[in-house]
Each structure stands twice: as structure tokens, then as C-alpha cells.
Amino acid sequence: MSGMITPRNAFVAAVIVVLALIPVYAAMTGNTFMMTLFTRIIILAIAAVSLNLIMGFGGMVSFGHAAYLGIGGYVIGILAKEGINTGFVQWPLALLVSGLFALGVGALSLRTRGVYFIMITLAFAQMVYYIANGLDRYGGDDGLTIHKRSEFGGLLNLSNRTVFYYVCLVLLLATVYVVWRIINSRFGAVIQGARSNDRRMRAIGFPTFRYKLVCFVIAGVICGLSGALLANHTNFISPAMMHWTRSGDLIVMAVLGGMGSVFGPVIGSVALLVLEETLPHLIGFASHVITGKEVVAAKEYWQLILGPMLLLIVLFARGGIDGLIASARRG
């Protein structure tokens, strides 16, 4: 509450500015890889923000959140394969199917708690994963190439990298804003109250189940959007989009960036994916310095460095990177 310009807000603003300037940098240097990487970061950040709505604020640890990435993606891919390329049909349908799936999963899983909740969400995600594996018409486990990105008439040309990048960025910022409004609304108060003390919430008169279910559906819809973007980004769908390790990645992003704030998972997404790209190079460089030549095999062990970093964050900075920066001022 002490003014708008805190180190933390400045950091958030800096992250947004950097994200906004990536295409400019890429255009100047001709670095298309940078564009690809950051488009992906932004898309997965949307998924991580949606996961954090239920996990960080609602206390519902879903271990099957990647299922919505897959569902969103498959709706795009299947429609494209069947010759329906208009985004005005593809995208709303991707969100709708994701929402309906979340409704079903939530209706069952929210009757349980703790480990059982985690396991049921995981089980549903695995189910969708194997269904996608069995869809021979749509590539089975090999996946399916999407030949045309979603078309929005003359409105937007998603095949243009830069346009697509900014569409993703605007959708990410919109997602963060919407989730932030939700968190501070009456609905958000109920969700956070239920995380803190569900029994007491019922005692003071809240039917918490239906609020949690609606929250679960909202998160599913937003993640479905992320899936629709991801399919357009890679021009490809495959069951790997919703492998359970992907659900794990989303949890890591939220924890790493900070579950206590709406923006935390965005920081986590940037941090995790940038580390994933740069750590192998750093290891290669270090091996070059130490042994005189690059030890290629050593590069594969980048997770040996990421693991302890995560451990330190979880042990010593429960608010994630975002929490660290927010408390830095007190030093």
C-alpha cells in the first residue's frame, strides 16, 4: 500500500517492457530463435497464470493442467484438419471444450482433498493424453501438422511472427489483468477464504463447492486459450502437449515465480524457459574453460543445476522470485 513505485512493481514493469521489445530486438539482430522462444514463454505463462488462479489462490493443486493445453490445441488442429480454419469458430470452441472438460473434472475432483485431488486431476489428464494417442485420424502419437494458422478475416494475420507475438502478449496481459480483478472481487474473496479455511466458509454461509467449481472452470478456459495459441505457434499438435511432465512444468513455473501474486507465474515462466535454454550453453562454456574443449555430453545435465535452484527457492523464498523481490526492500 506504500505507493506505486516499489522495487517489485518496477521489476514487473521491466519484465513487461522487455517482453514488448523482444520483436524489435529480434528484427534488429535477425535472431528468429529469440522470437520463437519468447512466443512460447508468453503462451505458457498464460497457462501458468491460469493454474495459479486455482493453485495459488484457491489451494486446488491440479496436477493435470496440461490437459487443457492439449484440448485447446486439439480443437484447433482437428478443425484445421477438417477444413475449418476460421478463428472465430476455432477459438471459441477451444475455450468451450476446455471449460466443459474442467466442469467435469472439477465436479468430481473437488469432492476430494489433498493427495486425492492431485491424483484425480492427474488421472483425467492421463485419460485425455491416451485418447489423443488413439486418434489415428489426427496423427495418433505422432501428432498432426497444422497447415494453416487460425484465420481472422482481414483482421489479424497470425502467420506474421510479429503480429502473432503481440497477439500472445496482449492476451497474456489481459489474462493477468482479468485474474487480478477476479482475485480482488467478492468471488476472489470466497476462493481465497476456501483455501484458508473451507469449513469456516461453510459455517458462515458459503456453499464453497460451487464457487470452487466455477473457479476451476475459469482456469480451464484460460488454459484452453493458451493451448489454442500453442497449436498455432508450433503449427503442430501431439499428445506430448499434455504429457504429465508438462503439468509439472506449469506447477514449477508458478512455484518458481511466486504463487502469492498474479504476475508471479509470468516471471516463473520466463525464468524456467530461459534457464532451460541457457543452462546447457553455460555448462558447455564452463566445460570449455575447464577442460579446454567443450564437453557436449555435459550439456545434458543442465537439470542438475536447475534442481538445486528450485530447491533453494522453495526452502528459502516461499513467495518465489516475485516474493524475493517484494521483500528485497526490507533487506
Binding site: 477476479i182 479455511n197 469449513r199 469456516r200
Partner: peptide, 26 residues
């Protein structure tokens, strides 16, 4: 049995909210 990570006023306001119509205000 309170909401420990909320302020006292937030706790009580939540109880008021429970009886001020539905909370599907987003």
C-alpha cells in the same frame, strides 16, 4: 477457526459477504 492470513476486518467482511446475496461478482 479464522482466516489467519487475512486481516481482522477481512475476516468479518467475509462473514458479511456470505449474507449479502451471492458472490458471483468477478
Amino acid at each position: 477457526s479464522l482466516f489467519l492470513d487475512f486481516t481482522a476486518l477481512d475476516n468479518v467482511a467475509l462473514a458479511v459477504q456470505a449474507h449479502a446475496g451471492h458472490s458471483f461478482h468477478f
